[in-house]
Design a protein around this nucleic acid. Sequence first.
DNA 1: TTGAAAGCGTTACCAC
DNA 2: GTGGTAACGCTTTCAA
Lengths: 339, 339
Amino acid sequence: MPTIKEIAVLAGVSRGTVDRVLNKRGGVHPDTQARILEIAKALDYRPNKAGIVLSAQRKNLKLGVVMFGTNNPFFDDVKEGLNDIESELSCYNCDIFIKTTPSFNEKDQIDAIDDLVEMGINALAIAPQNQEGVVRKIDELREKGIPTITFNSDLPSSSRIAYVGSNYRKSGETVAGLMKLFDHKGHLEIGIVGGAPSVLCHTERIEAFKEYMEKTPSVNIVDTVWNNDDDVTCYTVVNKMLSEHPEINALYFTAGAIEGGCRAVMETGRHKDMIIVAHDKVPSTVDLIKNDVIKATVCQQPYVQGTKPLQMLFDYLTTGETPQEINYTDIEIYIKENI
Amino acid sequence: MPTIKEIAVLAGVSRGTVDRVLNKRGGVHPDTQARILEIAKALDYRPNKAGIVLSAQRKNLKLGVVMFGTNNPFFDDVKEGLNDIESELSCYNCDIFIKTTPSFNEKDQIDAIDDLVEMGINALAIAPQNQEGVVRKIDELREKGIPTITFNSDLPSSSRIAYVGSNYRKSGETVAGLMKLFDHKGHLEIGIVGGAPSVLCHTERIEAFKEYMEKTPSVNIVDTVWNNDDDVTCYTVVNKMLSEHPEINALYFTAGAIEGGCRAVMETGRHKDMIIVAHDKVPSTVDLIKNDVIKATVCQQPYVQGTKPLQMLFDYLTTGETPQEINYTDIEIYIKENI
DNA sequence: TTGAAAGCGTTACCAC
DNA sequence: GTGGTAACGCTTTCAA
């Protein structure tokens, strides 16, 4: 493997000059520059990450994280990822500051970002609200030279450099495909239980699910109700839906807090013939799968959503390599046997 | 983050002495040793990986890999993983030597290992034959100070330090679970198509599958045939099985070369009502899923099987951290929509 | 526009 | 038993 030192010798210059060229810092004579680039290409030079990281420790990089502080246990796995990457990067003199915002409130997120900037962060990872103010704030940071990566939910219209998270349309389609495979009667009458109509990822899943099912004649979508990520609400709305629609033989839960809903199903005694599919792998969902109430759950690698954005930001700041813009997490299917 | 330098200052010794203690090289006064260990513990010292890797480059580590040279495209993904990790580790002055053995022959593998040892490898990754001679050879290497990690298939009775690969029993059970969920008739008559009775991983899958299904009254396993990982053979045996058993309504392919078998099914016109589940994600399987011939395929992260063993060996040789012994890859379910 | 040197954390080698 | 020092590859700062 060629090193900067070797290139310097071959080009008859000092290591500093090679570094200036390779990292586009400017101030080098065009001829020298051309010569160095040619040699680097010929030798297939690739920088040594260990050297870069070691050297970067003198910068004391600071990374900021903004996310919901909800009690949705889905985020426990995200947090586990955050903790692991924090402990790894701390060895490289890189600090991570995490801010959780209590409500689904735009201003809270913006304030959190401002706080982090105040603390001197060099980059930001955010699970953002889908709101204009947050977009503008990300653009503002970009101009200040602070790159942002979105995770869990994207803001394509902002100038974030990358997104790490689920392809919600494809995950809705995967649930649709599963239900068709599970369909034992040859005809599905489906009730959908979403979180809240304002949460983009849930509505995207539902939209894709519906569009996909519309192409299938043997499937009918009966009703869509919302549980506001709340167990009690979930019980009530599912109870009501089932009594109004005795024909329902399949349920699609797109959000958290499904325990109450499943309880409502079990009370009717219809869960044996009901095809229930959910998202994410929280403890209550695992239990429901083990007890044959839910047939399958479709997941989105929450741990990766915690680690990867920060890893990418760290790499970007140290090695300068531009991350891939769209990083969809795998769509994982779990049933009783592989959960 | 504390460094060796800091510990040295606090303990009133040199960096060399701290290094000797932390890496158990011996030759240090017990009192000094105790003092240093105490300080390291108190500061929660964790070695800096970038520093270790940089320093380790002077060793020019060599890793050996032994695997089948079969034309089974499953191994293409493993090889992709091998290539990626090779290119990454090459930056750290670590070379990787890959030997593929042509046949399912014990002696070939042992010869390949001997060749690699001759070349001076510091560690070995092997997708092993399940044979006594290979076990003994691994034990022999261990005594020479050359650690081995098995991948794809394990040799628990050998002194390999770790295994990376599928839990074949669990993956067979997952197929069983899927088939039960897909069962539209309320009664499964299943034909099993294995690779070869001598390949451990296939027989393990089948065994677990059968044991699991035996607990289910509505399931009957009609017959088990072998295709020797060969398309033509597969066509023949499936053709024969289907004509002898018109009651079969589900097929479980546990190995590669399933295209011929599926062709036989399609020729009978029974594929519309046939529940077919397979393993691994090779191009032909993807096609068969997209064309609704196969309902699902259960995979075992081949890419990870290529990268992780070498990453673990490199870490073990440089940082000295003992790898986890059993590293099961995820059991991934793919259907038409998430493939 | 360029060069020289220090420093990041660890390991290895040579003195004592 | 222990200390000092050079080396791994890269970046940064100061000086020319």
